[in-house]
Design a protein around this nucleic acid. Structure first.
Length: 331
DNA sequence: GGTTTTTGACCAAAT
DNA sequence: AATTTGGTCAAAAAC
């Protein structure tokens, strides 16, 4: 996720569909405007009367506002929550490997364990809608090579809610995996399953999946490395809007600088949340954070925070006004 | 008969 | 140096 350094809170709303018209400033800033919504396949205002289109735009605008309100709540709460305060000065998700991982934590050093277990392939997110994924941490770690050099490996940890009765430990992330091992670990009675990408050895990505010790309905999937091939596409796994449907608006937001990077996925009801840890330090209690994210207090704080950011962004308000004006009939 | 999963054994790093 | 633990291998079983 691209993050900005100039503001403690940067809203990076990557919302919407491929552009049809010339990108507005708001679009360039990543914001989906009301006009975009109305002109998208999700909104069919063009074929309606002005009254119908207006009502539809109003409804869509309300819908997006509501989503933004929820996101504001979540961001504000997370940002205010100083449990995230342990970050490097840069606060950037793409840390130099030397700071992204503890000196003894590269993949391959086995005993650094879950502290380096926070991992990311950058790919397991796109199916949060299917899996009920609620959080992820990303860090880069160094993997020593035989020639003495190190390569950076992206590592991501994803929490996913699954059926407690489901013992398969299968996390639907859109990729194909081959299981190569299972192990019971010391601090969790549930076994940990080890998977390699089905395209191995050409694709080096691995993942570990283990049911949460505290909540058996949650599984933690740890991805190591990045896929070097496209996701095997299957019907029904595309985002509803991208597939031409009228579903939720894809959206992501990032916060950065002195705080953590947080990604909110509006393709999921209630919004999936990724917490992207800037440094290699393990997040002490992400599960707790996830529970807090769902709380009314969190939502309220998020509303205020996001509203402040949006209304304070002159570019956004100008672009929104311009987009609405374009959709108004000429008299 | 080929592919995938299971599972005990093995190895290496950490303690 | 011995033990513990996590990760991987590979033969057997299952599909």
């Amino acid at each position: 996720m691209e993050t900005a350094r100039w503001s403690p809170v940067c809203l990076d709303l990557m919302v919407g569909l491929p552009m049809v018209r010339e990108p507005s400033p708001a679009r360039r800033a990543g914001m989906r405007t009301q006009a975009d919504i109305a002109s998208s396949p999700c909104g069919r205002a063009a074929s309606m009367t002005n009254g119908e289109a207006s009502k539809m735009m109003e409804a869509k605008f309300t819908e997006v506002s509501e989503e933004n309100r929820r996101l504001t709540e979540m961001i504000g709460y997370l940002y205010a929550n100083q449990s995230f305060a342990r970050h490097s000065p840069e606060g950037d998700g793409e840390q130099p490997a030397s700071t992204a991982a503890s000196p003894t934590s590269p993949v391959g050093k086995k005993r650094s364990r879950e502290s380096m277990d926070t991992s990311d392939s950058g790919d397991g997110n796109s199916d949060k809608k299917m899996t009920g994924m609620v959080e992820a941490e990303h860090v880069d770690v160094e993997s020593p090579l035989s020639n003495g050099t190190c390569r950076r490996i992206k590592v991501k940890r994803v929490c996913t809610r699954i059926d407690p009765s489901d013992t398969s430990l299968v996390v639907k992330d859109g990729y194909q995996w081959r299981k190569y091992g299972q192990k019971v670990t010391r601090d969790n009675p549930s076994p940990r399953a080890y998977f390699r990408c089905a395209f191995a050895p050409s694709c080096p990505v691995k993942k570990k999946v283990q049911r949460s010790a505290e909540d058996s309905s949650m599984v933690e999937a740890t991805y190591e490395g990045e896929h070097n091939h496209p996701r095997p596409t299957r019907a029904g796994e595309l985002p509803s809007c991208a597939a031409g449907g009228g579903g939720p608006v894809p959206c992501s937001i990032s916060i950065n600088s002195s705080g953590p990077t947080i990604t909110l996925d509006l393709t999921k009801d209630g919004g999936g949340v990724q917490v992207v840890e800037a440094a290699g330090e393990a997040q002490p209690d992400l599960k707790k954070v996830c529970r807090e994210v769902a709380s009314p207090e969190f939502r309220a704080a998020l509303v205020e925070q996001m509203a402040r950011e949006l209304t304070g962004d002159r570019k956004f308000t100008d672009a929104l006004a311009a987009a609405i004006l374009r959709k108004l009939p000429d008299y």
